[in-house]
Nucleic acid binder design. Structure first.
Length: 268
DNA sequence: ACACTGACCTGCGAGC
DNA sequence: TGCTCGCAGGTCAGTG
């Protein structure tokens, strides 16, 4: 599912494909994708250009001329840049006709994704109480120490909490905890200063490797291909049977309502 | 304040 | 074969 690295890849691919493009009209087929009035959304985007491409957590941010377009892919949201006459299936929910004749299409089988317009200069720093970006220096061991103070929740839940750090989802949370040798169910109360440091380093290492891997797909895009980013193919624990490090059987447990994979030998 | 649960959706695979 | 059921996952509202 799109997490920070995938969202970053989608953003850079779209920047490559549609930067500067003008919207001539918008068709909203499934209105619930749009927060607020879908007709106003479509009307406000007429004549707007895709000028600047930004990301905050898992949110895609497009600075236009008079508005900022914000899009969250949730689980299965994807963008396609196609010709209007190309066939489209029943999961294409929002269509943006571009002045150059192409069509930007938003596809989402489960209709979980959301998009909306806000002010052109909207500041996303404290948007939705999002925590720091993982690569921001504010995300550090002492920050983790302050954040977890008085809390008892499992480490897995803490990593998934977007107000703790922005952009981590279920897959990378499992991978980060695997790299740190910490079980997902371990209480955030019971970790050391060294663990806090490891969480910071491993989060950055895993996310940046994933971004680097996803970035390579930008060069091989085709206009009809869904812009969805690269999903992790080589996870150490998530949805794995055998631990890559020690060969033990990977366990799965539901933590905070999420399936969580871990190695009972490598992770304590 | 914190922690957990269910709703939102659809497709898919397991089990009967 | 054909049905039902449970699961997948990000976010938020609701509950304890």
């Amino acid at each position: 599912m799109p997490e920070l690295p995938e969202v970053e890849t989608v953003l850079r691919t779209l920047e490559h494909m549609i930067k500067g493009a003008e919207i001539v009209s918008v068709k909203v087929i499934y209105p619930k994708i749009i927060e607020g009035d879908p007709e106003e959304f479509a009307e406000n985007l007429k004549g707007e250009h895709f000028n600047v491409f930004e990301r905050r957590g898992k949110y895609l941010i497009f600075r236009m001329d008079h508005f900022t377009l914000v899009s969250h892919l949730r689980m299965e949201g994807k963008y396609y840049v196609q010709q209007p006459e190309e066939p489209r299936d029943r999961h294409m929910h929002v269509l943006f006709d571009l002045a150059d004749g192409r069509q930007l299409r938003y596809r989402d089988t489960r209709k979980f994704g959301r998009m909306f317009l806000t002010d052109l200069n909207y500041d996303f720093a404290d948007f939705h109480e999002l925590g720091p970006e993982p690569f921001d220096e504010a995300f550090c061991a002492s920050y983790i120490h302050r954040f977890r103070k008085g809390k008892t929740q499992p480490l897995k839940s803490m990593l998934l909490d977007q107000s703790f750090v922005a952009g981590i989802g279920n897959i990378y949370a499992d991978e980060i905890l695997s790299a740190c040798g910490l079980r997902p169910g371990r209480s955030c109360k019971r970790i050391t200063k060294k663990d806090e440091e490891n969480i910071v380093t491993e989060t950055r290492r895993i996310l940046s490797e994933a971004i680097a891997a996803g970035g390579t797909t930008i060069r091989t895009y085709t206009s009809s291909l869904g812009v969805s980013g690269l999903f992790q193919n080589d996870c150490c624990v998530h949805e794995q049977k055998i631990c890559r490090r020690c060969g033990s059987e990977i366990h799965m447990k539901r933590i905070g309502g999420r399936s969580s994979y871990y190695c009972p030998v490598c992770q304590k």
